[in-house]
């Protein structure tokens, strides 16, 4: 069981949360006309073996979106912040 340290609610079980997505992808500027940056944004991923920044939703808690650092090899948990406070 992964346990996530929600900045609002404290340490809670993973079952309260919903995994969102990779938090590293950045949307291109809306005026971007080249298609490749959009393809990269929508489809292509770093998919690292190791530390990964990702969005989680505390769906059955404070309902805030969080940015969590988690190791994809060991499931070790790093820092957890409110997504609205994190530079995209």
């Amino acid at each position: 069981m992964i346990r996530i340290n929600c900045p609002v609610c404290g340490l809670r079980n993973e079952t309260e949360f919903t995994y969102g997505a990779d938090a590293n992808v950045q949307r291109p500027e809306m005026g971007e006309e080249d298609t490749q940056p959009w393809v990269d944004y929508v489809f292509n991923r770093e998919n690292p073996r190791g530390w990964h920044r990702e969005y989680w939703h505390h769906a059955q808690g404070c309902r805030q979106w969080l940015v969590l650092e988690r190791n994809t090899l060991t499931h070790e948990i790093g820092s957890c912040q409110l997504a609205r406070g994190v530079e995209a």
Partner: peptide, 8 residues
Amino acid sequence: LDMYNSYA
């Protein structure tokens, strides 16, 4: 799936 990225 476990739903989150994992190589574990």
